[in-house]
Nucleic acid binder design. Sequence first.
DNA 1: AAGTGGTCTAGACCACGCC
DNA 2: GCGTGGTCTAGACCACTTT
Lengths: 239, 239
Amino acid sequence: MTQPDSLHYLGVRDAIATRIAGGELKPGERLPSERQLQVGGGVARGTIREALFQLEAEGIIYRKDRSGWYVSPPPVVYDPTRWEGFMSYVEAQGRRPETETLSKTEIACTPALAPIFGRPVGAPMYRIRRRRSVDGRAVLVETIVVDAALAPDLLSHPLDGSLTSVLKSAYNIAVARNRVDMQPCALTRGEAEALQVKSGLPGLNVVRTSYDAQGRVVEFDREYWRHDALKISVDIRVR
Amino acid sequence: MTQPDSLHYLGVRDAIATRIAGGELKPGERLPSERQLQVGGGVARGTIREALFQLEAEGIIYRKDRSGWYVSPPPVVYDPTRWEGFMSYVEAQGRRPETETLSKTEIACTPALAPIFGRPVGAPMYRIRRRRSVDGRAVLVETIVVDAALAPDLLSHPLDGSLTSVLKSAYNIAVARNRVDMQPCALTRGEAEALQVKSGLPGLNVVRTSYDAQGRVVEFDREYWRHDALKISVDIRVR
DNA sequence: AAGTGGTCTAGACCACGCC
DNA sequence: GCGTGGTCTAGACCACTTT
């Protein structure tokens, strides 16, 4: 008999959490399979899974679809008031960043985008979809939209680094104001697929709108982060 | 037969989401019980619950323990770079804020707090636990710690409003710098209980450290938010 | 081919909210 | 005291990853 704090699945949770905290299971390592975790306990697989979901919600473990459960690495710290770019701040934290461009296309400005950019529906825009990883684990997918009138021929530039610095160096466009919105969400359909997570997992939706000194929108970026990959830190001085 | 996109629980999810989006079920209203939702479909209750968990992760519905499932109201927008205080910004959004003081005690500075405040272990501190609600739904619990040397007799002041303004008006302590850390988390034990949610639900952990002009920590605040109650918005001007 | 997690069924009992 | 969600069992089959 497992005999936990009255609840089986929390007892199983604690048992696994203890093995992780004790260093028996290290970040990135795989847990025993669900059926193996059942062994002596006389516990149904559903109860084991309940415990695993709990640990997943806490950010302690994560899963690779149909491959297994793994111990989560520590989160990346992100300061929305700075924009050195993903690559540099991840590296500064001693982690290995990676960016893949999933697609880059010219699109016509949609009714949803028109008011954001202050441009007519149908105006040419560039849309870039990227996936970014830390230490080989995909942590976010993003969709960036840029006004083609401001940055003609943008897509011929290298897009796997900082887009902001491309805009600065190739087009002399400087960001003067940044608006960042963040909201807990569920990762569904496309985002979940790109991050190779189960649809419905919690995530963080980060929307960044960058303006130049004239108030024009130079970059509109929607990011979907794994909920366990990120820690936000903002430091503000009062005027 | 329900006949969804191959997956039963996603079909059930879509059916419920449609009823909510269509206005048949309004924010704050209760959904039919899990057993009622099974009716014609030949669907197991576990599958229904899978669909409800999905909607919960998306922030579309929430549950009151053993009472039922309800349609979520829209989130509150929170700007960490401003601190007019919870009461005023919630009101500004046309919602009804509420604050309850759960406890207020004098404590001895712990080893964890000592380096934050730069004070010796054992130094007197005040600890205040509060719960805050929007339109009658508890959305966050917080624990605030203040150095007793800076604000003697703090606990005799009214604590259901803005603590920052009490510090300002009663002690002439002004905040010069604010550090805000946010991280997705799971609501467990005490927090879950205070928010009347099931332990393990996703939440957002917000830690705010406020400094005065001399660099002293005047307020250390740890907040646990329901994941579906909050939207963060930051607006930054570049120097 | 074997093993894994993902989904689903059909029951059961319990603790607790609500009336 | 009835109905609710919360927990749990013991199976089953499937899609997919891994070897």
